[in-house]
Amino acid sequence: MEVKRLKVTELRSELQRRGLDSRGLKVDLAQRLQEALDAE
C-alpha cells in the first residue's frame, strides 16, 4: 500500500481499522499508518 497516495479520509479509515489514533495532519496520519504497516 502506498501510504503517501492515500487521501486523509482513507488514512483515517485505515488507522481506525487498526485501532490507532486517527487525529492529526495528513503527514502525521501517513507516518502513523506506515509505522503500523512496517510492524505487521
Rank of each mutant, 00 (worst) to 15 (best):
E14G: 01
Q31P: 10
V3L: 10
G19K: 02
E10V: 05
E40G: 08
Q34S: 09
S22Q: 13
L37I: 15
V8Q: 09
V3M: 07
V3D: 08
K4P: 05
T9G: 12
Q31M: 12
D38I: 01
G24A: 00
R5E: 14
K7G: 13
S13I: 13
M1A: 03
D38L: 06
T9A: 12
T9I: 14
V3A: 10
A30F: 08
L29D: 10
G19L: 01
K4M: 14
S22Y: 11
Q31L: 13
K4H: 15
K7N: 15
E14M: 07
A36P: 04
K7A: 11
K4A: 11
D38V: 08
K7I: 04
G24C: 01
V3R: 02
Q16D: 11
K7S: 15
R23Y: 13
K4G: 10
S22F: 15
D28E: 14
A39F: 09
L6M: 15
L33E: 11
A36T: 08
L20M: 12
D21M: 03
L29H: 05
T9W: 10
D28G: 03
L33T: 05
E35V: 12
E35Q: 14
L29Q: 06
D21K: 04
V27R: 14
A30V: 13
E35F: 08
R5Q: 13
D38Y: 07
Q31W: 09
R17D: 08
G24H: 00
L11T: 03
R18M: 08
R32Y: 08
L25D: 15
L29F: 02
R23T: 15
V8L: 12
D21T: 08
A39S: 11
V27M: 13
Q31N: 15
Q31D: 08
L37G: 06
L37Q: 10
D21H: 04
D28H: 08
G19R: 03
R12V: 10
L25G: 14
R5H: 15
E2P: 00
D28R: 05
M1E: 11
D28I: 06
E40P: 02
D38F: 06
T9Q: 13
L33S: 07
Q34H: 04
L37N: 05
L15F: 02
S13N: 13
Q16W: 02
K26C: 06
L37A: 05
R23E: 15
Q34G: 08
E14S: 02
Q34W: 02
R32K: 08
L33C: 04
L29W: 00
S22P: 15
L25I: 11
V8I: 07
L15Q: 04
R18C: 01
Q16P: 01
E40M: 01
V3H: 02
L6C: 00
L11R: 01
L37S: 05
E35D: 13
E14L: 06
Q34F: 01
R23C: 14
D21R: 01
Q31H: 04
R18G: 03
E10M: 06
E10K: 00
G24E: 01
G19H: 08
R23L: 11
K7E: 13
D28T: 13
R5C: 10
R12W: 00
V3P: 11
L20W: 02
E2Q: 08
L11P: 02
Q34D: 07
V27F: 10
L15D: 05
R32H: 04
Q31K: 15
D28Y: 01
E2T: 07
V27C: 14
E35R: 12
R18T: 01
K4V: 06
D38S: 08
E40V: 02
Q31C: 12
R17G: 07
Q16T: 12
K26R: 11
Q31Y: 10
L33N: 04
A36S: 10
L37P: 06
Q34A: 08
E14A: 05
D28W: 00
R32F: 00
L15T: 02
A39N: 15
R23M: 08
V8C: 09
L11E: 06
E40I: 01
M1G: 04
E10T: 06
R18L: 08
D28A: 11
V27P: 15
L15E: 03
E10G: 01
E2A: 06
